[in-house]
Amino acid sequence: MEHENRKALVAILAGGYSPEGAVALWSGKHLEKIFEGDKDYHTYLIHVNKDGWHYEDAKSNGQRFHVDRNDFTLLLPTEGKIKFDLAVLFVGGSPGEDGQLQGYLQITKVPFVGCDLLSSAVTFNKSIASRLVRSFNSPVVHVSPSIDVFYSVPIGDSTVLSTLNTGYLSLPVIVKPANSGSSLGVSKVSDISQLTSALARAFEESNHIIVEQFIHGREITVGVFRISNQIQILPITEIVHSNKSAFYDAQTKLEGNDETQVITPANLSEDTKKRVEAGAIELYEKFHLNGLVRIDLMLQYPDEKVFFLEVNSAPGQTEYSIITQQLAKAGWQGARLVDFYKQLFKEALVIKY
């Protein structure tokens, strides 16, 4: 059904099946608020959870109406059957960041903002993403040594210990799920006595985990997007810990703490800034990314060599998210923030998957 004001009808899919869903829903609500009363787009916040996908209709006292997933339409008593012109995804973990929703939207022929099925799936799996970056033979971006551990193969501690004994890895190491976001299940192991609990914590999130060499250095993150076929970089952010043994874990991302500062723009030398930007653009191109993504990197001490951490193909975009801070520093805030998202919308409408 065509909207009475002839606005484009946008489904904001938000939430997800994992613990990250709460923050993702918050991002969706933020975008809904930004577009409230907009003359060009009418948004519908679709809650995505394991019980189904639904829209809470304010015109019907908040009554829930479920999306027909056969054709991705919504039937409302006040508006009739709604066929969406565009979808925006704020779905943490599965089924959003792993490519499942993107595949569904490609099948139902609904244009969407962001990465397609393949680029979402390969970047969501940190092991596959790291292997691909290594295969790129980048002159700028490096990958730290790592091993894969699978829950189905009863090796666990002994395999990691033998790898440490050979010298391929050395303490400290990072233990993390291969396919989970928001640093859920991630631990830094500085002493061998911490290994068993770190593996157990990671296996709570995934059957496939990675043990990788910890990089001593500066933790940075870069927002990247494409508009009019031009890849653009947002101001770079550095995450600074007063406790040198800390890292940007899930609790800090969600709640913050007094020991962690998020600094935008990062205080980088011109040479380092150019290398980081060049590396981020290379990764965006070679992973065939689309829309707005965040690329996490480390600058190793003392020479600030760039190391790859991960690509977040659906970064949080709440009022307090790093991406939102970067957009503000680039001048995309207030009324201009709406213009930024409109450009992403227009870009999505011309992409052919």
Rank of each mutant, 00 (worst) to 15 (best):
E2W: 06
E4V: 14
V23W: 04
W26R: 08
S27R: 00
S27C: 07
F35W: 07
V48R: 00
N49P: 00
D51R: 08
Y55H: 08
E56I: 06
R64D: 06
D68H: 06
D71K: 11
P77W: 01
P77L: 01
T78W: 01
T78F: 01
G80T: 05
K81S: 07
A87V: 13
V88L: 15
I107W: 10
T108Q: 12
K109I: 12
L117T: 11
V122Q: 08
V122Y: 08
T123P: 05
N125R: 07
S138N: 07
H142M: 10
I147G: 01
I147V: 09
V153W: 04
S162D: 10
T163I: 02
T166H: 02
T166Y: 03
L171Y: 04
V175W: 04
S180G: 02
S182G: 05
G185S: 04
A198S: 08
R201S: 10
R201Y: 09
R201K: 15
E205Y: 10
S206C: 11
S206Y: 04
H208R: 03
E212F: 03
F214Y: 13
R218H: 14
I220D: 07
V222F: 03
G223A: 11
Q230C: 04
I233C: 03
L234T: 02
Y248N: 08
D249A: 13
E255C: 11
D258V: 11
P265A: 03
P265G: 07
E270H: 05
K273M: 11
K274Q: 14
A278S: 12
G279K: 07
A280L: 11
Y284S: 07
K286D: 12
H288S: 12
H288W: 12
R294V: 13
R294A: 15
Y301A: 01
D303N: 13
K305Q: 14
K305A: 08
E319R: 12
I323Q: 09
A330T: 00
G331W: 06
V338Q: 12
D339S: 13
Q343K: 15
L344D: 05
K346E: 14
A348P: 09
